[in-house]
Simulated assay, not measured.
Amino acid sequence: MTSIFDDIKSAFSRGNNSLHQLILINVVVFAVLIILRTIMTLSGSGGLFSYLLTFFVISSDLTLFAYRPWTLFTYFFTHLEFFHILFNLLNLYWFGMLIREYLGDKRLVNLYVLGGLAGGLFYLLTYNTIPYLQLRGDSFMMGASGSVIAVMVAAATLLPNYTFNLILLGPIRIKYIAAVMVLLSISGAVGSNAGGNIAHLGGAILGFFYIRQLQRGSDWGRPVQAVLDFFRGLFQRRSRLKVSYKNPDRPYAATSSAAGPSGGTSAHGTPSQMEIDQILDKISVSGYESLTKEEKQKLFKASQK
């Protein structure tokens, strides 16, 4: 057990590791809930577990939701069925790797969080305005599907002709994989898992427009990063190191000697805003696939700021 905890701690201590961190959070929450459900059920407290679960899943009942607004965030980290979490995390890994490679870790987290929020809000909106869904009565929803399909559709919008090799089917462009998932979600919106499929649609819409706005130079994920940076600051120790110069007559000597090449790149190799704007302009005209390897690396470095 000590080794497992060390692995978890290590995963969260490393930078540029958000994909594995998102997967790990989902797995840990799943494991804890499964253990609690088993213990409580065997001890005759299954009803208590069901009540406990309402603090993690999102309810279509607006009165109950008003008392537990945090469930708009916790529901997309909550699973109780093995195949539910398996398929969600496999898709998150496959498509998340593409987002991470081309847009960086921060924007992957942005997509996951915003997709989950969009899915949850769309679920609440439809279940309280559409007569067919209102007649079904109150329901609860859990799972990362809305977040995952946001990442999937975003990847397909970003790299529509990128191919995955599927078993028995061979190479398939991801735009067709995403399109099939959206069509299945539309069909399922009137099925037994209507709430989950509606959340899929909310996430899909978010994923598409997130990339479209990013290509226009607007990042919808900045508020997400601002909130996350705030909480990181609460848990990170402030450095007590002080920097001083031995030669007060040349305070900028170290900086000038480490300066990067001309063209707007900073001393640490971070591309300038002008370079990023040029890359984004190129993307809006020709798409991401037109970028060179160097331009992709610059875009990735910029996303880490």
Rank of each mutant, 00 (worst) to 15 (best):
S3P: 00
F5D: 03
D6Q: 14
D7Y: 07
R14E: 14
G15C: 01
N16S: 15
S18E: 08
L22H: 01
N26H: 05
F30I: 10
F30T: 09
V32D: 03
I35D: 08
I35G: 11
I35L: 15
M40A: 14
T41L: 10
T41N: 12
L42C: 03
G44Q: 08
G46T: 12
F49Q: 04
L53S: 06
L53N: 12
D61Q: 00
W70V: 04
W70N: 10
W70K: 08
T71Y: 07
F76D: 07
F83T: 11
N88I: 06
N88R: 01
W94G: 04
M97D: 11
M97Q: 14
I99V: 15
E101V: 08
E101A: 10
L103V: 05
L108F: 01
V109K: 06
L117N: 00
G119R: 05
G119F: 00
L124I: 09
L124D: 07
T126K: 04
T129K: 11
T129P: 10
Y132I: 15
Q134Y: 08
D138F: 11
S139H: 11
M141F: 05
G146A: 15
V148H: 08
V148E: 05
I149C: 00
V151T: 01
A155G: 01
L159K: 12
P160H: 02
P160T: 00
L166I: 13
I167G: 00
I174T: 00
K175Y: 03
A178V: 04
A179Q: 02
M181G: 06
L183W: 10
S187Q: 10
A189G: 10
G191K: 04
G191S: 13
A194R: 03
G195C: 00
I198C: 02
G203H: 02
F208N: 13
I211P: 04
R212V: 09
R212D: 02
Q215T: 14
D219A: 02
A226Y: 05
V227P: 05
D229H: 11
D229E: 12
F230S: 12
L234F: 08
F235L: 14
Q236N: 11
R237S: 13
R237H: 13
R240H: 06
L241A: 15
K242H: 08
S244A: 08
S244T: 15
K246V: 09
N247K: 07
P251Q: 08
A253I: 10
A254L: 14
S262N: 00
T265H: 03
T265E: 05
A267M: 08
T270E: 07
T270M: 10
S272M: 06
Q273K: 09
Q273P: 07
Q278C: 04
I283G: 04
I283W: 00
V285A: 11
S286F: 14
G287W: 01
L291M: 13
L291H: 08
E294R: 02
K296C: 03
Q304E: 14
